[in-house]
Design a protein around this nucleic acid. Structure first.
Lengths: 338, 338
DNA sequence: TCTGGCACTCGGTGCGTACGAGTGCCAGCT
DNA sequence: AGCTGGCACTCGTACGCACCGAGTGCCAGA
């Protein structure tokens, strides 16, 4: 087990390295921090920390930099979550309050997060799986052509065209609309298939085909759109990555373009607890020198989606975690209100 | 006026430089192209081209590279638009045909363009101003709460919440919905304000307030959402920018995050003709070493939005223009079908 | 267990040299 | 008048080399 002071040394190394981007040596450490011991002692501690794999030297006779394992220890044991200043809180609220619709909320959130953390921000749209149905609308565009519009409690709207097997009268349409809504409004998406199963049977045989088509389109929409959408921003912050950045930045940009990868990144977080994945803890190999800080947000108690940031492993974890958590909270509030 | 051969030399310089990314010298030119003259002659021609401002040397005793003016001449006079190969055409069609909704069309288009040109792709959503109304839907969510859904002929859907000044009955709602639709369906957005102006007067005084609120929300939506949305992709292609790229890439990424800037970039193009803006021809100062190739696309004859790519001034203009034009055409077709 | 001292390592920097691609110019040829 | 070969010149890049200094590991002593 590491002594108190050694942990303190590790904390100091992480803090200095995050600040300066340069390997930190024993002398500099004792100068900038009140450790109460001499450089030589610190050197011994560093040797131990290196043996344990928490820090490493880029080359012999350079200072030390934290390893992924070192950051992990720092995040788990040494660092808290730094709360935002109250001007920052006010700024968040003002910025998010002006949003007019869901797209706008998500867009503003992305920009906000990117600005606060000075890193790449990723915000997932509220997921349909955990949402409930606010309304299902059916419109007749042509005699045998319908449009299905699905509205969720989080304000998301999905629409689909439907070509009917047979013309479908206004009366039947109104009937279907009413029955459909009475069954599914307020219910969770996951429950919808069960709730509408026997609906076609109660219609005239001539309409039954169309009703089935409509229902299967609805179910399809539920499934298809469960594949999540997300928005990213702040990519220009990648340029502050470091000196060796041309080689780093490429795979990161590529990873950021693949929604699947990003969704996995955010998605692995279990429920609403904040997740920090550091360096090689990320499965994707383009992201082995980045860290991801993600957290769920939602309109109620339960998380409906995730948001987070992607940055270099050398990041200000307490500050970033504070910003991510705060933004998630406010977005949750906004969604709950609307 | 430049002689035929001098133009030929310029073309050769542009082509070689685009290929190799390195300043091209007189000897290399005569080796790679059948100009039928000696390096010395080419040198003389180069001196003239340099005097006229079409090419420049990065340093004394280096080869020449084209200037913005040189690229301009190349694009205007020396280069055609290179048509795509038929496998490429087929790939485009296959790729775009699978799209399920407007978001999907735009998303696929962006990825396609980025992949074909290996550059950053920008696609503007079909603009509302030139669109027509396909349907307006009003839903009652609570006694005094409505949702307005606006559907355009290009498949775009906008929704807004409305808090009514007074409860609004189902009958009135159906009435308003019917009257509204009969007036505006199939009409252009620009005409809508005129068409609904005197609508409130025909309602009972108790409902008039709500009707006015609904209409003003509708008009607001038309105006607000006329500010265009767009999608970008292929940013990882920026890494192929060149050696000096850390300094170049930053402002470009920043510019790409500002929708306003991008919209201007695409927007200045007059109607549906293809526009190429080279280097300093771009107003934005972060983009002085990039070129923009943009073109309008639309479901009918008229362009409803723009799409294009952003890349280094040193790009393959004929190929890029060919890809951009082809993609625009196919997207237009897809939109017309849906 | 901490500290001061000391020898050692090695990456970064600055300088001088050599190299070579590329140019401009000029005299001569067609 | 226009093209070509030859030639001197420029200058950016690569290479070698020595030096400096930050940082380390180790050890003997408090």
């Amino acid at each position: 087990m590491l002594s108190e002071r050694r942990l303190e040394v590790l904390r100091a190394i992480v803090q200095d390295y995050v600040g300066t981007e340069e390997p930190v040596g024993s002398k500099a450490l004792t100068e900038r921090h009140q450790l109460g011991v001499s450089p030589a002692t610190v050197r011994n501690d560093m040797a131990v920390l290196e043996d344990e794999g928490f820090i490493a030297q880029p080359h012999t006779s350079a200072g030390r930099i934290p390893t992924d394992k070192g950051y992990r220890l720092f995040v788990d044991k040494l660092a808290g979550v730094k709360p935002l200043s109250s001007p920052e809180r006010r700024a968040i609220q003002n910025f998010l309050d002006g949003a007019v619709d869901l797209d706008d909320v998500v867009g503003r959130t992305v920009r906000l997060l990117a600005q606060l953390t000075r890193q790449v921000a990723v915000v997932q749209y509220p997921s349909l799986t955990r949402s409930t149905v606010r309304h299902v609308e059916l419109l007749s565009l042509a005699p045998a052509r319908l449009m299905l519009v699905l509205i969720t409690d989080t304000g998301r709207v999905e629409q689909r065209m439907i070509d009917c097997p047979a013309p479908f009268g206004e009366a039947s349409l109104a009937d279907l609309r009413a029955r459909l809504n009475s069954r599914v409004v307020g219910r969770r998406f996951a429950d919808v298939p069960r709730l509408v199963r026997e609906l076609p049977e109660s219609f005239d045989s001539e309409d039954r085909g169309t009703v089935s088509t409509v229902l299967s389109t609805l179910l399809e929409t539920l499934v298809e759109e469960t594949e999540e959408r997300l928005m990213i921003g702040g990519t220009s912050n990648l340029t502050r990555f470091g000196h060796d950045f041309p080689v780093m930045i490429r795979p990161v940009l590529e990873a950021l373009e693949e929604q699947v990868v990003l969704l996995k990144l955010l998605g692995e977080a279990t429920d609403s607890a904040m997740t920090v994945r550091i360096g090689h803890e990320n499965a994707h190999e383009g992201l082995t020198s980045t860290s991801v800080v993600a957290v769920g947000y939602g309109s109620g108690d339960e998380a409906v989606a995730k948001l987070g940031v992607v940055g270099p492993t050398r990041m200000d974890y307490p500050g970033t975690m504070g910003a991510v958590r705060a933004v998630a909270r406010y977005v949750g509030q906004i969604l709950a209100e609307s």
